[in-house]
């Protein structure tokens, strides 16, 4: 196979055009998404720093913020708990303690009497 005999020009054209197009298209989507996120993205209200004039209002707004957006650590803990629950990785006990009596009931199928006395005549 002679590598020089291959039409490399055409192959490189395909590669160059395709690669450029993929980037152009995705850059355009990035551009649109950036504009889009500014318009549609939820406005996150940051907790106000406690002011000197109104020190009481600060903790309430912080509470409100925490109520709306869980801290990352809490989210991670909830996620882990859910994961363990759904994967059934957590060892669950029945919490009922019973003493099971093992009783050997009489049965003619296991009786020694029949086995010993029914001799072949």
């Amino acid at each position: 196979m002679n590598i020089l005999a291959i039409d490399w020009g055409n192959a490189l054209d395909v590669v160059g055009f395709s690669l450029t197009m993929v980037f152009v298209l995705l850059v355009m989507i990035v551009f649109v998404l950036n504009i889009f996120s500014r318009v549609v993205a939820p406005k996150v209200r940051m907790p106000k720093t406690p002011s000197v004039n109104n020190p009481v209002s600060a903790p309430s707004s912080e509470k409100e913020y925490v109520k709306e957006h869980l801290p990352a650590g809490d989210s991670a803990a909830i996620a882990m708990a859910l994961y363990l629950y759904y994967e059934e990785a957590h060892d669950e006990e029945s919490t009922v303690i019973t003493i099971k009596t093992v009783e050997r009931r009489y049965s003619p199928w296991s009786s020694k009497i029949y086995g010993l006395n029914n001799l072949v005549k």
């Binding site: 196979m1 192959a11 490189l12 850059v27 990035v30 996120s37």
Partner: peptide, 24 residues
Amino acid sequence: PKSLLLGAAAQLGIFVTYLAAIGL
């Protein structure tokens, strides 16, 4: 959204392999 560009760059493998296959 910048992560879209990383998704585009990872398509490099397709084009390098395309050239390698043409070479073969």
